[in-house]
Amino acid sequence: MKMEFDIRGMDFTRAGEASARIKKALQMVGMKVETIKKTVIVAYEAELNVVIHARQGTMKVRVCPDRVELTVVDEGPGIPDISLALQEGYSTAPPHIREMGFGAGMGLPNIKRCSDELEIESEVGTGTILKAVIINHPDGDSNV
């Protein structure tokens, strides 16, 4: 089962739409609450990264019984130092984005915290490919 979403740079009004759709789909499938919670955060932060930094991108979602795989490919500036970008509070967002309350340097750290597997490939001046996997643990329901 696959879903695909187009993301456009600077389109803040639509940011969050993809993660809302993904959440609904995962609920209908009956994924664990914990899996859905983590996936929503990863999808939203990844979507937002494209909106803030890139010209455009796509997010592909693959839903399997035991896992959710997210692949986000963008055309953008790329990340020169990935390990630096994964540090909390490190941000390259311009001031006007920070004034909107975004770009606090928590995007990638949040993605890392909520993913079970994470792979980032980036080429400066070309773009970034982010692959995240969230495992649907059978006992992953904190609320039930």
Binding site: M1, A25, Q27, G30, M31, C64, P65, N143, V144
Partner: peptide
Amino acid sequence: NNITPRPVHKLSDNIDEAISMLEAVE
């Protein structure tokens, strides 16, 4: 007591079946 989730509108109790149903929905 804790407030517990109410069974959401799952497509099927079988996750494999639910995924193929979701595909059909899409």
